[in-house]
Design a protein around this nucleic acid. Structure first.
Lengths: 233, 233
DNA sequence: CGCAAACATTGAACGGTGTGTAGAAAGTGC
DNA sequence: GCACTTTCTACACACCGTTCAATGTTTGCG
């Protein structure tokens, strides 16, 4: 090979795989997850459907790859918002993340549905690997905020009783390593925060709110404000 | 016609339609929404796929009919739980409804996904009709609880600013008729409550929590408890 | 350089899907 | 009994994902 790390073929291969994903992503935003058709993608690329099988073992594998990218995109948006919030102010941080979460979802509804919905019928997140890792990033950011504001929370309310055995062992060990001394109750709160944020967003993205309110964003922001104030943040 | 109201043919027609829905429902619980295939249903009934088109204009129409039934089933479960809760105790009522919501979802995950997910890609709830009515029942129950406990809420917290124009006109008029004097802020709170309950349930049903916690029910119940206490209920 | 192995791509095929259409069969009402 | 409507079959159409043998094409090694 002429290059030290990547051969010419490997480079072409990566480019083709990226093009496949790009076209699939466009099909997703335009026609939803059901619009991602291997035949249509191949048609767009001047290829045959079977050719794609050199790059992705199956349609689900392609969609999984897409999900990893999208998980990272959402986590990047959250991280960027978090970086723009006042450090040491968990309330502002939580608000920033929550608004970024909703804004990303509203801007990319089909992508959001692909990640958190059931576009791939029988799809199960693999036990390990980049997919799971990418999915963890979002929750990890929340845990960081909770860790920073934990003392303020406990000053005004007694959290639920929780034990480390209530959680996935991998997650438990990860949190204990990254935030030494943080009690399991804080992890429970992190997940609850995620649920709180996720709820209204999911209702909005899936069209349930459009029958009720004309200002879903206002409702969401007010809910987040109530949340931060209830946490003493 | 021999009978006063329903002819023999109309009766047979209703029975066949019910059988189609029943088989579709079984296919849903066993293989998910994607497993609902007109050909498979017809095969089970000893018919041809085309025959189903005398009963449902299209596959989506069949699924919509299923959704109406399921919406009502969920609302029935909530109403039953509500009836078992102490009258005049909004906290107990909210807890009962929330637990019933989650229990129904856990017991019927595919049905829950069909209702609140995107099984039918481009499906939009019709402006009027039984589908929308059935979907409204769940939220209406919450509004009733909020109406009953509204004074207790305002005693401990100042709700978000809201106006009737923030909401769907039909909904606004409906609430104003049913709960005279109830401010728009109470409607906003109802929707927020729904979102709060919905969030963790949706994360659990869609498998996002299984990577994090081993006791999603415990987390949910604790969240509901925190919710009622924060509302002074 | 030459050659064998790995890879990329095609085109056809298989079994599956929803959805139309034409026509036969059967129930309904006068 | 006759006209009409509804139900159903049979078939065709246009898609879909996936597999497979065959055919070029690229790569790395001797």
């Amino acid at each position: 090979m002429s290059d030290g790390t990547t051969s010419r073929r490997a480079r072409l291969r990566a480019e083709t795989a990226a093009e496949i994903k790009a076209i699939a992503l466009k099909a997703l935003t335009e026609s939803g997850a059901a619009g991602i058709s291997l035949r249509a993608i191949a048609r767009d690329m001047g290829m045959t459907a079977g050719a794609i099988y050199s790059y992705f073992d199956t349609r689900d594998a392609l969609i999984t790859a897409l999900m990893v990218d999208l998980h990272n995109s959402l986590a990047d948006a959250e991280a960027a918002a978090l970086a723009g919030a006042a450090a040491g102010d968990p309330g502002a941080q939580l608000t920033a993340i929550a608004e970024a979460y909703r804004e990303w979802a509203v801007a990319n509804p089909e992508e959001f549905r692909l990640i958190y919905g059931d576009a791939v019928p029988g799809y199960e997140m693999p036990e390990e690997g980049p997919a799971r890792e990418a999915a963890h990033r979002a929750c990890a950011l929340l845990t960081g905020i909770v860790a920073a504001g934990w003392s303020k929370v406990t000053a005004v309310q007694t959290p639920m009783a929780a034990a480390w055995t209530d959680f996935d062992p991998t997650l438990a060990r990860l949190v204990q390593d990254q935030f030494p001394g943080l009690p399991p109750e804080a992890v429970a709160l992190s997940i609850q925060l995620w649920g709180r944020i996720h709820g209204l967003v999911v209702l909005e993205i899936y069209g349930q709110l459009s029958n009720l309110t004309l200002a879903p964003g206002k409702l969401f922001s007010a809910d987040v404000a109530a949340l931060t104030s209830s946490l003493n943040w």
